[in-house]
């Protein structure tokens, strides 16, 4: 066991834990944001640079600070390490720059995009970004293509986090899509529009932090914040069957995996659960989904235990807590 100090909070973690996971053990506002790191996918992380933190003291043996900011998702914590996240102005400034870089090629078509409301890039930019863009160069343009009968690919929105390729590598038997070309030209593609038809391929939609991979069945049908998410399960031979059904009235609009407070799915669901069961009788509904992070989906809904506003929205209040009613979701 090693001792790490993150933003003044000391915590004991296992050897080899990354700074990100140590911070998640503490929880709350000191957890660095992540766009590409996904705890259930091996080898993810280190690409988006959203989680950069400052290491003020390398370890107890070698107390020199690290010369540059490090990616917390892929840097192992050392015994006696002192990490600064939200307490360092340098980190916050760099994060604002990262938002700007991620948005250089992003089309910002949130009014059209189906991911809006549950988009990690949207939340990240809302918390850390500028109000306006400084880039005057043309953005990358791609055609919208169908990859398979279920998934639509908007390459313009992609931030190249590589999560979807890892899902294909680690969950399915055969990967038929990948990242073509290099550098600025790189794009996710199936090369000759080969259909993605594997049983677990639908999870690519869930892991995508932006709206690059979207559900063709749910496309433009409703905005996510008008739907009521419910925890539900069904008996499934292929997967755990634990999912979230998104209802409006009696109709199921879509089925997704259960995302935790960091937007990560622990139990991936199969395509049969996701796309073949849109009747309410197919599912055993456990109850309303508890909101774990702050987003537009839980705006106007009350959940005392878990809902907390971002810092800049409640900084003017004295008690720094959102006064809410309990139990109503």
């Amino acid at each position: 066991m090693i001792k790490v100090t993150i933003d003044g909070i000391e915590i004991e973690v296992e050897d080899g834990t990354t700074i990100m996971n140590a911070a998640r053990k503490v929880g709350g506002k000191i957890v660095p944001p992540a766009m590409c790191y996904y705890s259930t996918l091996k080898g993810s992380g280190g690409k988006c640079r959203a989680c950069l933190v400052k290491v003020a003291q390398g370890s107890a043996k070698d107390p020199r600070p690290m010369p540059k900011l490090v990616a917390s998702c892929s840097t192992a914590a050392q015994d006696g390490m002192v990490v600064q996240n939200i307490t360092s102005q340098e980190v916050l400034d760099v994060r604002r720059g990262i938002v700007e870089m991620l948005l250089v090629n992003h089309p910002l078509d949130c009014p059209v995009c189906d991911q809006a409301g549950e988009c990690e890039l949207q939340n990240f930019a809302f918390d850390h970004g500028l109000q306006r863009t400084r880039s005057e160069f043309p953005r990358r343009e791609f055609d919208i293509i169908d990859i398979g009968p279920h998934i639509k690919l908007h390459m313009t929105r992609c931030i190249l986090c590589y999560r979807c390729t890892m899902v294909a590598d680690q969950l399915t038997d055969q990967r038929v899509h990948g990242v073509l070309w290099r550098g600025e030209k790189s794009e996710i593609s199936t090369y000759i529009q080969k259909a993605i038809e594997n049983d677990f391929s639908g999870n690519m939609i869930d892991v995508c932090p932006v709206g690059a991979l979207t559900d063709r069945h749910f496309r433009f049908r409703n905005r996510v914040w008008f739907l009521a998410p419910f925890d539900a399960h069904r008996h499934c031979t292929k997967c755990s069957g634990k999912a979230v059904v998104w209802l409006r009235g009696e109709e199921i609009y879509r089925v997704t995996g259960r995302k935790d407070e960091y937007g990560e799915v622990k139990d991936f669901i199969c395509n049969e659960c996701r796309w073949d069961h849109f009747s309410k009788t197919d599912w055993i509904i456990e109850g309303p989904r508890k909101f774990e992070g702050w987003s537009v989906i839980n705006a106007n809904k009350y959940d005392k235990e878990t809902v907390e506003l971002p810092e800049h929205l409640y900084s003017k209040l004295d008690n720094k807590k959102w006064e809410t009613f309990e139990g109503v979701t």
């Binding site: 949130c110 009014p111 059209v112 809006a116 433009f220 049908r221 409703n222 905005r223 914040w225 008008f226 537009v296 705006a299």
Partner: peptide, 18 residues
């Protein structure tokens, strides 16, 4: 049909389909 007017509406007067 982004739905922002409907979510901003305090009287819930707006409905839409895209």
């Amino acid at each position: 049909a982004c739905g922002l007017c409907a979510v901003a509406c305090p009287a819930e007067a707006i409905t839409m389909e895209a």
